[in-house]
């Protein structure tokens, strides 16, 4: 089967559907473009990284973030209101005892505003099926090996909450400012498939 041919067939199907919906006045081309512009310009792991760096440098912010992330985010000009309706955000903190990792086993729930569009592996059956059953084997495929005495907690976002992992601040970063710290944080760190 030719992937390219299948892909062009589906592209034609999408174009026809879009044309019919626009012609019927159900959606507008400008509306679709605006949705994509907002997604591609606004939704990024840079947002989650900023939240993380602030939490590392401001204990009061960290306390507010872990207690009620929705009311703490506006301190950084962020919010969970970008979707259809405001979503509850729960930030879960990695410690020397606990490592957190996120999944949605039923579909692909993900905090897009804070982490950007989700990677394909996050939406794959392989990840969704395995991470709740044997998280350490999944983390190992990302090159993340945790000490045996660390408890792994897997958060399956099956309802209206979205999750973000607060990674541990790396050792040897005492001299770094908030912006430099934010540059250390990766998308995988915020999902929990990397240490930071």
């Amino acid at each position: 089967m030719s992937g390219e041919h299948a892909s062009s067939t589906v592209a034609v199907r999408v174009r026809r559907l879009e044309e019919r919906l626009v012609a019927a006045g159900v959606v507008g081309d400008d509306q679709l473009d605006a949705i994509l512009t907002k997604l591609l310009n606004g939704a990024s792991p840079v947002n989650g990284a900023r939240v993380t760096a602030r939490a590392w440098t401001d204990p009061g912010f960290k306390e507010r973030l872990l207690a009620d992330a929705n009311t703490a985010l506006p301190e950084l000009g962020l919010s969970m209101t970008g979707g259809i309706q405001e979503q509850r955000l729960k930030v879960v903190e990695n410690t020397t005892e606990v490592h957190n990792v996120l999944v949605c086993t039923l579909c692909s729930c993900y905090p897009i505003g804070l982490l950007g569009p989700s990677p394909s592996w996050y939406k794959s059956e392989a990840y969704r099926s395995r991470v709740v059953r044997d998280p350490r084997s999944v983390l190992a495929e990302f090159g993340l090996e945790l000490p045996d005495d660390v408890t792994v907690t897997v958060w399956d976002s099956s309802a209206e909450s979205r999750y973000m992992v607060l990674p541990r601040r790396p050792d040897g970063t005492d001299g770094l400012g908030e912006e430099e710290l934010a540059r250390l944080v990766t998308r995988e760190g915020l999902i929990g498939t990397a240490a930071v």
Partner: peptide
Amino acid sequence: TVAFPARELWGEGTHEVTVDL
């Protein structure tokens, strides 16, 4: 938010799974 020990779900394992119900 409900937390399940891996042993309860799979009969083995030391991790925990939380599910929103």
